[in-house]
Design a protein around this nucleic acid. Structure first.
Length: 318
DNA sequence: AAGATCCACAACCGCGGAAAC
DNA sequence: AGTTTCCGCGGTTGTGGATCT
């Protein structure tokens, strides 16, 4: 049963987005901000369902999205977070602010899953050769101990991945710079700038496209080009990654950790944070909603750090 | 060179939860 | 309190490009 799909209506366009549609959507959001997706198709004249608009925005058009190859660090993070959180891509994405859940999900399904499977096969092959099949011979107690060990290993590996002693990747530098910039108000102008650049870029691309329309599959080709360009531009907004995925995710993630490890409420760390991250009293910019919510940006990472570094919180981990 | 197959990823679908009525 | 509507999430599919045969 369930609700009928919102895209069943006649006249609703599906498939790849064209640059023109992108521009319509971006300029509308530029004026009104994201949210109220229901109204977007009506107000923009787009023949798209609200869902499609939201998806297009969150996955491609919003500023701060990094596209392209995943770094080793990101890969490690995804693997370990997936081990800890399962397929909760939105939660995982909240630790990789420049990546969308869709991106991470795709990367997991296309690359990491295979990689891990292969590794597992190799290990199991060895085990079978040794006359030992791990998964079938474990008693419940052994299984639990193994689970504990897995969690600890994941935890340790995650700590390695985020350790400041490691060469920091853009990922964590961006988190760090977020943290630093919280005390100043420098992030917002940067962010707006990048957004404007994004919209301008679409316009420029469209002009180019109209001058020299590609011979084959124009919409997809240009769309892809636009996406990449947007991604590249978005990458400049390291200081102000978008937060679409962080809304609500931080708490959700904290709950996950809490439930996983039986930690007490995060109230204390929250209050600490709320002090250090006093909300910006200035009038909001157009894309305030899109800006990295200080709390959401900071909380998961801080908590993660705390969790990783606090051996006491998880007795017997060392 | 051409067809077959694989791969990557953008987009869609359906569901659940929350908010609005 | 019950129903409807909207939003967000995760799983899945479709399509075009890349690679292989």
């Amino acid at each position: 049963m369930g609700r009928p799909p919102c895209c069943d209506k006649e006249g609703i366009k599906k498939g790849p987005w064209t640059p023109e549609e992108d521009i319509l959507l971006v300029s509308y959001i530029q004026q009104h901000g994201p949210g109220n997706w229901k109204a977007v198709p009506t107000n923009t004249g787009l023949s798209r369902c609200s869902k499609s608009c939201r998806l297009r925005w969150t996955n491609y058009l919003r500023p701060g999205i990094k596209r392209g190859n995943f770094t080793d660090q990101e890969e490690k993070m995804i693997i370990h977070l997936q081990a800890l959180l399962g397929n909760r891509w939105a939660a995982i994405a909240s630790y990789l602010p420049q990546r969308t859940d869709n991106d991470i999900k795709n990367y997991w399904n296309t690359h990491l899953k295979k990689k891990l499977k292969k590794m597992q096969t190799d290990v199991e092959g060895d085990s079978v050769r040794d006359g030992f099949s791990a998964s079938h011979t474990l008693s419940r107690g052994q299984w639990e101990r193994r689970l504990q060990t897995d969690i600890q290993m994941a935890k340790r590996a995650l700590r390695d991945a985020v350790s400041p002693h490691n060469k920091p990747s853009g990922l964590f530098q961006s988190n760090i710079s977020n943290t630093v910039s919280f005390s100043s108000t420098s992030a917002k102008p940067t962010q707006s700038l990048c957004y404007a650049a994004t919209a301008d870029n679409i316009a420029r691309l469209l002009k180019e496209w109209k001058k020299n329309p590609p011979k084959k599959n124009p919409s997809r080709t240009i769309s892809t080009v636009t996406q990449n360009s947007l991604g590249n531009l978005g990458a400049c907004s390291k200081e102000a990654p978008s937060d679409e995925y962080n809304k609500g995710n931080s708490c959700e993630t904290c709950e996950t950790f809490e439930s996983l490890f039986g930690l007490e409420s995060l109230d204390s760390s929250n209050s600490e944070l709320s002090q250090s991250l006093s909300p910006d009293p200035e009038p909001t910019t157009l894309f305030q909603d899109e800006s990295k919510p200080e709390c959401a940006a900071e909380l998961p990472f801080s908590f993660l750090e705390k969790w990783l570094l606090d051996e006491v919180a998880f007795p017997g981990t060392s």
